[in-house]
Structures are given as C-alpha cells and as structure tokens.
Simulated assay, not measured.
Amino acid sequence: MRFQLTEEQRALRDGVRQLLARRWDVRRAPAALDPPLAPPPGPSESPSESPSVALPELDRALWRELGAAGFFALRLPEADGGAGAGLAEAVLAFEEAGRALLPGPLVATHLAAGTVPGAATGETVVTAVDGPLVEWLAAADVVRGDASGAVPVRSVDPLTPLHRVPGPPSPAPPTLLAQALPPPPDPTAVLLTAAEQLGTATRVCELAVQHARTREQFGQPIGAFQAVKHLCADMLVRAETARAAVYAAAVTGDPVDVAAARLLADEAAVRGARDCLQVHGGMGFTWESEVHLHLKRAWLRARRRGGGAESEELLAADLTA
C-alpha cells in the first residue's frame, strides 16, 4: 500500500495552509486569547459552571471563507456542489487546521455539510453534543444531540468555549443500562479529530526544533545538549508514527485502524506539546507563545469521544475476536 501523496493532494494541503496563514494567526488574536475577566460566580453557582464564564466569539467571516474554499464540502459529490474528494483529502485539510490551531466546531460542521442547509458554504455553524461536553454551543446555529440544560464551563483552552450537558439524575437501573449507553462515535469524526491532533504534533515539533536552534545557553544553541536532542527526536518519532497510522486509516476507513490512529495521534499531540513546552522553558507559558495553546487544545481534543478507553476497547475486542 502506497502512502505517497498525489500531486492533487499536495496542492490541496498547500492551499489550505496558505489560506489559513493568510486569514488566521493564533498569535494575532489577543481578543480571543485574553477575554475580559468574568465576574465571580454567585453564592448558588459552581465556580466551574457559572453563567458568567467569558466565551470567545466565532469569526463568522472566516467560517464563510472556509466554506467558500470548500473546506466543509470537501467530501460532497460534485453534483451537490462539493469537491468530490475522499476521506484522505479531508484528513489532509484537518491536519492543516490542527497545525494552525483553527478554532470552531470544524468536525461537526464538516459532517453536516450534506444534510444541514448552509453548512457546506459556512453560512450555518453546526456543533454536536460529544458526551457531556459541547464545543461552541453559544455560537452554533444547529446543535446535533440533546443540549437541554447545558451550562457554560471554564475551558482549559481559551479558544474553545465549552458547555456541559447535565447527566441523568441517578444511576440507571441494570435493566436500562444498555439503553442509557450513548451510541458509538462516528469513525469519521474520530479520524478527523486524530488528523487535527496530528497537525498539532507536527507543529509543536517544528516549534521545538526552531527554538532549540536559536536559543543559546553557555555560548551554544540548546539543541546541542543531549537532553534537548532526545526530546526533539522523540517528538518527531511520535508524530511520524501517528502520521502513518492516520493516513492508513484514511485509506482503509476501517474502524479498528481509526481507533489505532486516534490513540497514536492523541499521544503524539499531548506528549509532543508537553515536550515542546519543556524545550521552551518558562517562555512557553507566555501568551505571545503558541506552545501552551497547542497543549491545551490537545488536552481538549483528547477528551472527545472515540479516544482513550473507547479506542482501546475497540482494539482489544478486535484482537480477541
């Protein structure tokens, strides 16, 4: 099986990267990164679930520009106004979105492009209930799933507002346990999240190497020190291993391959961002650095459905079948 990108796929990847470089730069979004402080919660409010949580706003003009560029309609047939591309091309586009830390409910809107009017063109913002959490609920025009009673919670990622959906008031009886379990996650959504994580893993590796080459200590670049070399090498190995798995899953579409890709991509993004932060030292925590933002987004994506224990259970079931 060949994983070489075709000329058209490389052109797609480069086009998305150029669009995002021209239109979105996370380092130039002070309003989103430093929202006004919310007033303290009232006596009856939980500190983590307060209606006064400050929420960033979605850039609707950017969303429509993504729609005009075909980002959301990438997999729609040409007869329906799409590009007629496949899952592999969507993975490349979402990898670039992850690399750029592009905010917004990208996966939900992309998956709704063929069924929700306006989603394909970016005129309609679609989000989905993902377990107990909903991303960008206040900014969405359409919500897939039951978000009744959702309350805003403080998000670890300042670029991704969250709402929490209340769970059942009491544990479900054993006879109703199967009915209470949520449906399995959409493998396409799981893979696109893995692609975003791959983008973060690639970007933090680049940032670490750039800093290691330019930052000097004791009269030489810190990249000359063995400990820093090992951190950068490990980041590259994890990112490229995840890349092979994500690209393979995009070709096969097999849920088991998707589960393996998601686990590897989550690890590459989270551990890579943490190691990148180590290379940067205290500088990585500052607002003018994007390193800590990649770590926070990687943490958040790893909590989406289809990762962690769910992927491990699917792989275990396949191995023991």
Rank of each mutant, 00 (worst) to 15 (best):
A227S: 15
V228A: 01
E216N: 01
T241Y: 08
Q197I: 01
V246A: 05
C232R: 07
T200S: 12
G219E: 02
A245K: 13
A227D: 14
F218L: 02
D234W: 04
C232I: 14
V228T: 06
Q226G: 08
T200I: 15
V246C: 06
A242K: 05
A208Y: 01
A249C: 12
A233N: 11
R215P: 00
R213M: 14
H211F: 11
A208H: 01
A201K: 10
G223H: 03
P221R: 03
T200Q: 13
R243Q: 13
A224W: 00
F218H: 02
A245C: 14
L207R: 06
K229M: 05
V204H: 08
A208S: 07
R243I: 09
L207H: 04
A201N: 12
A201R: 11
T202I: 06
G199D: 10
T202W: 08
V246R: 04
I222E: 05
A244T: 15
R238W: 08
P221S: 04
A201G: 13
K229I: 01
A201P: 11
C232P: 05
A242G: 07
A201S: 15
F218Y: 02
M235A: 09
F225W: 10
F218M: 01
A233H: 14
H230A: 11
Q210S: 05
L198N: 11
L236Q: 08
E216P: 01
R238L: 11
A208D: 03
R213K: 15
A212I: 01
A248Q: 15
Q210V: 06
T241E: 14
T241H: 13
E240S: 10
L207K: 02
V204N: 08
V204P: 07
A201F: 12
V209L: 10
T214M: 00
A249P: 09
V237Q: 07
G199Y: 10
E216V: 05
P221V: 02
R213S: 14
V237L: 06
R203G: 10
H230S: 09
Q217M: 02
E206A: 15
A208V: 04
L207C: 06
V237K: 04
Y247V: 13
T200W: 08
L198R: 12
V204L: 10
H211Q: 11
R215Y: 06
A248N: 15
C205I: 00
V209M: 06
T241K: 12
Y247L: 15
C205L: 04
T200G: 11
V209T: 10
A224H: 00
Q210H: 05
H230C: 03
Q226I: 08
E206G: 15
L207G: 03
H211T: 09
V228Y: 01
V228R: 00
H211N: 06
T202C: 09
A208W: 03
Q197A: 10
D234G: 12
G199F: 08
G199A: 12
G223S: 05
R215D: 02
A248P: 08
L231A: 12
